[in-house]
């Protein structure tokens, strides 16, 4: 049932500092709202628990995208449209441009933010697997200061993250270190781009001759959270793509990925289907490396 909007409070603190002080004074009382493309849907179907919201959408100091000592730093309020319009992202981090272009349709991309996608922490979210393969770090801000974590350590479980109730995501930072890497991403959904994915795989790899020198894989919907597929990476590092060993490499990759897949069954798909499709996507990526 639709919620009664008069039961909800929303205000827009004048400054980021003021917002952080409010969060620190009563941790857990307030829910931050950025583009609202998750929270307003929850409101619509009567599932928005928090009655007190604070808007951070107007903080321009969280909406930026800049190059800094060989890294790109992206503010939490950056929208998917901002990401798609950035020449820096298009040139250096094409997988992020691609995942942004899949995060709902244009109207959704104009509002939805990278910070909201990360904190909502859906296992099916489109952008976290890309941040994982690109080796991102994440900076959190609170009244007591900033801390930076390896993004790989941020997601703890189903919709559970390291974010404390008094913190906001400030930015993510990605090394500009992937020139010469082969890059791959594919999302499988019901209505391709617009639908929430049933499964998605992102990968980057560096080859030396016919050998895989380095490979990183990130997946959505393969477990209860966005993950790096470390077992498959390990099985494939150093593996040969030469014609006479390709089949063995594909088998090793598929088997390792199957071991770490613990997909959930939900309304969008079954675990068996997800696992099988993820293996097929990995095979597609590996075959493209062999070409």
């Amino acid at each position: 049932m639709r919620s009664d909007v008069t039961e909800y409070e929303l205000s827009a603190p004048a400054t980021l500092q003021e917002m952080l002080s409010l969060l620190a004074a009563e941790p857990g009382k307030y829910t931050p709202i950025a583009g609202g493309t998750e929270l307003m849907v929850a409101l619509g179907v009567g599932r928005l628990q928090s009655r007190s919201l604070l808007s951070l959408q107007h903080f321009q100091e969280l909406r930026f995208l800049r190059e800094e000592d060989g890294h790109v730093v992206i503010g939490a309020n950056t929208t998917f449209t901002d990401l798609r319009r950035s020449a820096l992202i298009a040139e250096h981090l094409p997988l992020l441009a691609q995942s942004a272009s899949w995060t709902g349709a244009i109207a959704n991309q104009n509002r939805g933010t990278l910070g909201g996608n990360i904190v909502n922490a859906s296992p099916a979210a489109d952008n976290p697997p890309v941040l994982l393969v690109y080796g991102a770090s994440i900076t959190l801000i609170s009244a007591s200061g900033m801390r930076t974590l390896d993004y790989n350590d941020f997601h703890l479980g189903y919709k559970k993250t390291q974010l404390r109730a008094d913190e906001l995501v400030h930015s993510v930072r990605i090394p500009l270190a992937y020139q010469g890497y082969r890059q791959y991403i594919r999302k499988v959904g019901t209505r391709n781009a617009l639908a929430i994915s049933k499964i998605a795989l992102a990968g980057i790899a560096r080859t030396e001759g016919t050998r895989i020198a380095e490979i990183r894989l990130g997946a959505a919907s393969l477990t209860d959270r966005p993950i790096r597929c470390l077992a498959a990476e390990k099985a494939l590092t150093g593996a040969s793509l030469a014609a006479d060993s390709l089949e063995a490499t594909l088998q090793a990759g598929r088997a390792a990925l199957a071991m770490e897949a613990k997909p959930i069954d939900d309304i969008r798909s079954t675990a068996r289907y997800r696992s099988a499709v993820a293996e097929n996507l990995l095979e597609e990526f590996l075959r493209s490396l062999a070409e």
Binding site: A12, I33, G36, T37, M40, G44, Q57, A107, N110
Partner: peptide, 17 residues
């Protein structure tokens, strides 16, 4: 909104300020 397409069912009134 500011020249960009948005879905008004997902925008709280205050954010239109």
């Amino acid at each position: 909104m500011n020249g960009e397409l948005v879905n008004s069912c997902l925008i709280p009134a205050l954010q239109a300020e």
